[in-house]
Amino acid sequence: MLKVNEYFEGAVKSIALENNEGNATIGVMENGEYEFGTSTIELMTITSGILDVMVPGETSWKSFSKGETFRVEKNVRFKVKANGQVAYYCLYI
């Protein structure tokens, strides 16, 4: 069964799914800056738009665009800045 998630007063929405790759979400972010926490390792692939990311241990933002993937370790907090609407696929491992 699909599960719909909504964060930041509806500015970030995702649909959770389970498939042969594992647990994942497919979502969209409105323009803005957000902070998330992880409980597993996350591999996030941008499918549309540009997302700036600040992961723990880094001192500068890194931009990711369509087709690019970044990794976030488990049990950390990380920041993102959506430059316009951004769509993504996030795989939890």
Score class of each variant (00 low, 15 high):
Thr38Gln: 01
Ala24Phe: 05
Gly57Phe: 01
Glu68Lys: 11
Thr69Ala: 10
Gly57Gln: 02
Thr25His: 09
Asn19Arg: 07
Asn83Pro: 02
Leu2Val: 15
Tyr89His: 12
Gly57Ile: 10
Gly10Val: 05
Gly22Ile: 09
Leu51Lys: 06
Asn23Thr: 14
Glu58Ala: 11
Phe36Gly: 01
Asn83Leu: 06
Ala82Gly: 03
Lys81Thr: 05
Met44Tyr: 04
Met44Gly: 07
Glu35Pro: 01
Asn5Arg: 13
Ile46Ser: 01
Ser14Val: 06
Ile50Thr: 12
Met1Ala: 15
Ser14Glu: 10
Gly10Ser: 02
Gly84Val: 04
Ile93Asp: 14
Lys66Val: 13
Tyr7Leu: 11
Glu68Arg: 12
Asn23Ile: 14
Ile15Thr: 14
Glu68Phe: 07
Val80Thr: 07
Gly67Glu: 13
Tyr92Arg: 11
Lys79Leu: 04
Gly32Phe: 00
Lys81Glu: 06
Ile26Gln: 06
Val4Ile: 11
Leu91His: 14
Leu17Trp: 04
Gly84Leu: 06
Lys62Ala: 08
Thr59Gln: 07
Ile41Glu: 09
Ala11Pro: 00
Val53Ser: 03
Asn31His: 10
Leu17Val: 10
Glu68Gly: 04
Leu91Val: 15
Asn5Gly: 10
Glu9Ala: 08
Lys79Met: 07
Ala16Tyr: 12
Asn83His: 09
Ser63Lys: 09
Trp61Gln: 04
Asn83Tyr: 06
Tyr34Cys: 00
Gln85Glu: 13
Gly22Pro: 09
Leu2Asp: 15
Leu91Ser: 12
Thr25Lys: 14
Glu35Val: 02
Lys3Tyr: 13
Phe64Gly: 03
Ile26Glu: 06
Asn31Ile: 03
Ala87His: 09
Ile41Asn: 07
Glu30Val: 03
Val80Leu: 06
Lys13Arg: 14
Glu6Gly: 05
Tyr7Thr: 09
Gly37Val: 04
Phe70Gln: 05
Phe70Ser: 00
Phe64Asn: 08
Ile93His: 12
Val4Glu: 11
Val80Ala: 05
Lys62Asn: 08
Val53Trp: 05
Ile46Asp: 00
Ala24Cys: 14
Gly27Trp: 02
Val53Lys: 03
Phe8Glu: 08
Glu73Trp: 02
Leu43Ile: 09
Glu30Asp: 12
Asp52Glu: 13
Phe70Asp: 01
Glu33Pro: 00
Ala16Leu: 12
Gly10Pro: 04
Ser48Val: 05
Met54Ala: 02
Trp61Glu: 03
Ile15Arg: 14
Thr40Cys: 05
Ile46Met: 03
Ser65Ile: 06
Ile26Met: 11
Phe8Lys: 05
Gly37Ala: 08
Ala87Lys: 12
Met44Cys: 14
Ser48Arg: 08
